[in-house]
């Protein structure tokens, strides 16, 4: 072995290192917009509304820049990125795995029963499945792009300009970009909501929420990888493993929401306004004497900054896309609107 071959070997090693580092660091890289036949927004929206979500398996990346205050016990809400694994068997059957560090939350729906399993305390919660909601279990509501995007399209249709803004490639699939922009009359913090719709299956693949005054998305929920096709039926059944605490369903109308929204004890929130500047006013659950806060419910009394006005006094929590006011007399007003709209709604 001469010296020259050593120089070659050294160069080879350096090359391996460079390629390896490149592989590790390089992002997926934005692909060119795939050519697709033009489609009118109406057709696209309606095809999304009518499309039956079939069977698929995928990984969903959640990029959260909502600027929510840190709530102890609910780390998923804080800014950052996380990956969720989703399987759907169609007909209301689904499985969602939300890994976090050394634990995992698993949501399984077999079409009639919903299970939620938390590996940290090894508890399984059983609930009857909600009526006729397709796709993965509704528990994943905010995080599953199928349900989230379909819902957003349906509600925002009246008060927005709906356009199809070109095409994009999401998770290796050609997709239409459906863009919802609030009409100029709407007083909202949101600038734009983009939904990437699979050109073939018409399933929403990615939801991007852009706020006023920021170029970066406030929230991006989208598949990083998706495979359509029948899934192993065993994925959609759940048997509580030995040593698990099994809890039954919560109260009859207790809209089980994993404690993220403590249900207002049967009282539905009132809506003020419509469209993008809708304000929801509800009543905060009163902490009953001798009873602890429900497990996992955030303690709102320490968040936000104090405000007061003709409507009373309370604390305001501001995020990139929404504002919430919790008044001292226990009312909660929330909306994707500036603080002023909230105080006007509270003053009514």
């Amino acid at each position: 072995m001469g010296r020259r071959s050593w120089v070659g070997a050294g160069l080879g090693a350096a090359l391996v290192g460079a390629v390896g580092v490149g592989l590790l660091v390089a992002p997926a890289g934005a692909a060119a917009a795939p050519p697709l036949p033009p489609v009118s927004p109406e057709d696209l929206v309606s095809s999304v509304m009518t499309a039956r979500p079939g069977a698929f398996a995928g990984e969903v990346d959640v990029d959260n820049a909502l600027g929510l205050p840190a709530v102890p016990g609910v780390p998923q809400l804080a800014n950052g990125t996380s990956t969720i694994r989703v399987w759907s068997g169609g007909e209301g059957r689904g499985r969602v795995a939300i890994p976090s560090g050394d634990s995992e939350r698993t949501l399984v729906s077999d079409g009639t029963t919903r299970w939620s399993y938390d590996s940290r305390d090894r508890t399984a919660t059983r609930a009857p499945a909600g009526g006729g909601r397709g796709g993965p279990p509704g528990d994943a509501g905010a995080q599953d792009p199928t349900a989230a995007a379909t819902q957003a399209v349906a509600t925002l249709r009246q008060s927005s300009t709906v356009t199809v803004d070109g095409t994009a490639e999401v998770a290796g699939r050609a997709a239409y970009q459906l863009v919802l922009t609030p009409l100029p009359t709407e007083r909202t913090l949101l600038r734009e909501v983009r939904v990437a719709v699979d050109a073939e299956t018409r399933q929403p693949l990615e939801l991007t929420v852009l706020a006023q005054g920021s170029g970066e998305p406030a929230l991006q929920v989208g598949f990083s990888q998706i495979t359509y096709g029948p899934q192993d039926p065993a994925l959609f059944t759940f048997t509580p493993p030995p040593g698990t605490t099994v809890r039954g369903a919560p109260g009859p109308d207790g809209q089980h929401r994993d404690g993220q929204r403590p249900g207002g004890d049967g009282q539905r929130p009132t809506r003020v306004g419509d469209g993008w500047d809708t304000v929801l006013i509800g009543r905060a659950p009163q902490p009953q004497q001798g009873q602890q806060r429900p497990d996992g419910a955030p303690d709102l009394s320490t968040l936000g900054t104090p405000v007061s006005g003709p409507w009373g006094a309370g604390r305001v929590i501001t995020t990139a896309v929404a504002t919430v006011i919790v008044t001292d007399d226990g009312r909660i007003a929330a909306g994707a609107v500036p603080q002023q709209v909230l105080t006007e709604a509270l003053a009514r």
Partner: peptide, 17 residues
């Protein structure tokens, strides 16, 4: 594992060199 292999190759190359 890929990351570890990169470290492995670089470390081994430097050692031999």
């Amino acid at each position: 594992t890929l990351r570890a292999l990169v470290y492995l190759v670089l470390g081994a190359a430097v050692t031999v060199w």
